[in-house]
Design a protein around this nucleic acid. Structure first.
Lengths: 195, 195
DNA sequence: ACCTGAACACCGTTCAAGT
DNA sequence: ACCTGAACACCGTTCAAGT
């Protein structure tokens, strides 16, 4: 006993991600987490107000890691390919953490009710905003719309893929070409309409 | 008693949509539907294999209505604005049927396991594909990617909005301008890169 | 502070009957 | 065929205790 030396909170978040990737977002129950860790079924309430608060903490962590990944891809990309590289990193995250991604953008997690989650999501978006801004579009509503559009585009691709609507008939190469084509179209249009 | 004259199935789907818009996708339980209609808690199993099958039927109906709405907007639009008009219709659907939209694209509804749902979703996408094809892009992988990109773009905007990530600080006018800008950028880029 | 067992009101799903 | 009540194994959440 006494498996957790005061870090039950960390143990819960860790177990949550494990269960999440193994069984999907819907199967994530507080009681199962408690069972996995080896504490009583209501011990989690010492650290989280309710189930949604725990899910929000997991999702916020996901957004933080997403932001880190986007920033790294952006920093490593040659100047002309920053949007492409960052978009690819976004899609990679969604593909390699499918269940986490679905949780982060799933219903039943009201961003407005969880400040930490809202801030983490905003920080991830800010990385994309900066990348788009660096494409040479003068600041203003057009630039802001351009950044939101870029986010919507990569998010739409990632979400439709995670949802199984896209790429069932595409191979891995086909999927990469799809992403390249779509991002190129958008970047081209963005620069053209911004002039 | 005998509220349903052999159309318990229809009564279930009808009640499901009502509960859905009122309480969100997560709260949709078979037992509550049975209670609302006034039958025993397991009567639904006469018409649906399980909870997911009922949700799939509701979602399939949503995709059929979405396809109808997209086709109507496309048909009513002047030649040069078909993509804009269809995209707006897509976003309108997501806004006016928020919970249904979240169900249609939510996790826990495996399209592969429900042929009716998969076909309905594909039919809705086919409308978008035709609109993009009519923009004068020669058939081929580029046109197919262009159609998927258009879907991803409007879906991303709709989903981020439904998720509360966008437009909290935008008014209704600002949202309309956002949509117009983003769709214009994409359409411009699509034609430019296809040449 | 942190954890426990018991309890309450819910679920989805199954099954043996009833008409 | 279609519906019923009882039952099983789960949930989230609360509460009165225990250390």
């Amino acid at each position: 006993m006494r498996y957790h030396h005061g870090d039950l909170r960390r143990a819960l978040l860790c177990a949550a991600e494990e269960v999440l990737e193994r069984e999907g977002p819907a199967a994530l129950s507080l009681r199962e987490l408690a069972r996995v860790i080896g504490v009583s079924h209501n011990a989690p309430y010492r650290h989280f107000a309710d189930r949604e608060a725990l899910l929000a903490a997991v999702a916020a962590d996901g957004f933080r890691r997403l932001a880190t990944g986007l920033a790294a891809a952006d920093a490593a990309a040659p100047p002309g390919e920053r949007l492409q590289a960052t978009g690819r990193a976004y899609l990679d995250f969604a593909r390699t953490h499918r269940a986490l991604y679905l949780l982060m953008f799933g219903p039943g997690l009201r961003k407005s009710a969880h400040a930490e989650l809202r801030d983490a999501a905003r920080a991830a978006f800010d990385v994309l905003r900066d990348v788009v801004a660096s494409a040479g579009i003068p600041p203003g509503p057009r630039a802001r719309h351009g950044a939101i559009g870029a986010w919507a585009l990569v998010h739409g691709l990632a979400h439709l893929t995670a949802d199984g609507q896209i790429a069932e008939d595409l191979g891995a190469d086909g999927h990469a070409m799809l992403i390249a084509d779509v991002l190129e179209s958008y970047a081209t249009g963005l620069c053209a309409t911004a002039g």
